[in-house]
């Protein structure tokens, strides 16, 4: 009988010990940072995690717990986007276009417009394959769907020059970032804007809705024109 009582006491003590250990609150070093971010981006269709918030910071995550929603970025559906935000004039596969410049041609074309101070780069092959930004060779006969360069005016306004399927556009980058407008402003020589979608490797010639893009038309995009387009001038357009 005494052995049973002794054993029972030992079991109870052990259980008590385990209970105490289980209830022991682990020291939280950064309690404020254990709340998951409400603004964490979640792709469409992703279900809300039911995992307790504390799991995110209690132990160093391993590859196994890396959320799948961070694995890939969902590309934009260009067809649906332009359908909803523009008047589409034409859509054509990039490989079928005969307006695309070679590296040597774009070098000459931009130099004629005064854009010879800064490098000209490309990122896509005619197959739509993305590579890191690469500087052109002035003697290369290779074609690329998009070329870009930039220009800084005497008043330190920064412009990006984008040439898409032979059409040239100028983006007043510093103006756009400092502007209160909700939409981007660009300059073009035509009412139509040429876009390139790498996901489908297609050119889209469109007239954008003003709620999506404000297009200012100028006779010619060159350094003289950009020098004349100060912030005040753009505001007044």
């Amino acid at each position: 009988m005494r052995r049973i009582v002794t054993l029972s006491i030992m079991v109870l003590l052990l259980a008590g010990l385990l209970l105490v250990a289980a209830c022991g609150k682990p020291r939280s070093l950064t309690p404020r940072s254990s709340t998951p971010s409400p603004s964490t981006p979640r792709p469409t269709g992703a279900t809300k995690s039911t995992q307790p918030a504390s799991r995110q910071t209690d132990s160093p995550p391993t590859e196994a717990v890396a959320p799948k929603k961070y694995e890939h970025v969902t590309p934009r559906d260009a067809d649906a986007y332009f359908e909803a935000n523009s008047k589409i004039l034409s859509v054509k596969p990039a490989k079928e276009s005969d307006a695309v410049f070679t590296e040597a041609e774009i070098n000459k074309e931009l130099a004629r417009r005064g854009f010879n101070e800064y490098s000209i780069t490309f990122e896509y092959s005619m197959d739509g394959e993305y590579s890191e930004e690469t500087e052109i060779s002035s003697s290369s006969s290779t074609h690329h769907p998009v070329y870009s360069s930039y220009y800084i005016t005497g008043s330190e306004e920064v412009w990006v020059i984008l040439v898409v399927d032979g059409l040239i556009h100028a983006i007043p980058v510093s103006y756009n970032f400092e502007s209160d407008l909700d939409v981007q402003v660009i300059f073009s020589e035509t009412e139509a804007v040429m876009s390139y979608d790498s996901a489908t490797n297609q050119f889209y010639e469109t007239i954008p809705n003003e709620s999506e893009l404000i297009v200012n038309i100028v006779d010619r995009i060159d350094t003289d024109t950009l020098e004349s387009l100060s912030t005040e001038v753009i505001d007044s357009l």
């Binding site: 970025v73 934009r76 990122e123 993305y130 920064v158 984008l162 660009i186 040429m194 790498s198 893009l213």
Partner: peptide, 19 residues
């Protein structure tokens, strides 16, 4: 320095390349 209208998936390509 880009335009998401002129290149709707350019930033996505940049990120995917980085990933």
């Amino acid at each position: 320095g880009r335009s998401s209208y002129i290149q709707p998936n350019n930033a996505v390509d940049l990120i995917e390349k980085a990933l």
